[in-house]
Each structure stands twice: as C-alpha cells, then as structure tokens.
Amino acid sequence: MVSLSQRMRKLQHKLIAIRLGPGALVLPKDVKRIHMRFGEKINGGHMGPRKFWRHELIRLKYHNPAVPMTVDRIREEAQTPESEAIMSVHFASADARQTSSSATSSPASTDSTTTATTPSDADPTERVETINMKNKTNSEILQQLTQLTKAYPIEPTEGDKEELRLLEEQRVRSERDSKMYAEHRARMKREREIFEQGRNDLAAQTA
C-alpha cells in the first residue's frame, strides 16, 4: 500500500483544488438554486458548460453547501445542433428574502430525482435568470455568473498559503531528487553493460 505521506500529499492537492481556484465564490444569500442544462456530447458548443461543471461548479458548491446545484444533461440521442445550453439561477423574491432570515440553512424543497426542472415550471416566488452557455468557455460562464449574482471571491487564508508553499517546495524537491537519481541509475546501468560486454568478449576470445 502507498505510504501515508504520499497518500496525504495527494489528498492535500485534491482538497486544495476543491477549495481554491476559479469558481471559489460565495454567493449572496438570495441565490436559491443553480441549474445547468447542456448536452452529453461537446459538439455544438457544449464543451464550456461541461468544463464549468467539472471544475468551477465543484468549488462553487464547496463554498455554498446549502445551495442546490443540479446538472441535467441532454441525452446523446436527443441532442441536436440546436440543443440549448443554459444555466438558470433562481433568486429568492424580495418578500421571501425578508421572511427567511438565514437563507443558507433553508432546506430545498425541490425533489432530487427530477433534475429535469426547466425554468418555466419554477416556483412562482422565485425570480429566475438564465445564462446562455452555448459556445462559451468555462471562464466566460463564470464571469457572467459572477456579474449576475454579484458573488464575491474567496481569498486563500494564511493557512492555505502556507500549505501551498509547502506543497510547491515539496514539488521542487522531488523534481530535483528524481532527476538526480535518474542520472545515478543511468550511470550504474552503463557500467554494468560495459562490464557484461567485457566479460562476453573475453569468453569469445578464449573459446
């Protein structure tokens, strides 16, 4: 089994990737729900949305655990060049915001199994804004979302910075060591080859 320090270092990299980076935003409290709908295949401008889901949405979810974020993907067979790629952001309406003081911990009433909710049948108390994600890159989508929701970014804390510094140091060190040892191994191998050949030649001479 892999050593503990190796395992933990790998885990640290993974967790930092979930915590920090593009998409590490805190959404304002009136954002109730984010829903994405795009195709299973990237043809026709569906690559950006997928990248956004795989990278930015993970960080967004980590920093906003109470906001339901769903992804609904158009089946491969049903996907046509005209298939839309949209993100709908559901906001609490003005009066709803007053009643629920702690918006972060209000449980979502939406059924988890029906991910196919379209903006049309949304809760009437909600205001729904949509972003067209078609033919957009993940960074463009993030920019639009930030503008729409007025989310503010998370800055790495002192602890995070320290962790990043240590990981970077470790990376440099390991690169140096692996290079050094590769040289050492190559030298050993060459020496062994020379010796082996010398012995064979000797055997050939005497035979």
Binding site: L15, L57, I58, Y62, M69, V71, S112
Partner: peptide
C-alpha cells in the same frame, strides 16, 4: 462537505 462538492451535479441516486 468535500465529498458533496466533488459529486456536484451527479444523479443523487
């Protein structure tokens, strides 16, 4: 919290 972030957008079942 970490795992739910890593699984965002996957079918919950």
């Amino acid at each position: 919290r970490y795992l739910r972030a890593a699984e965002v957008g996957r079918p919950p079942t």
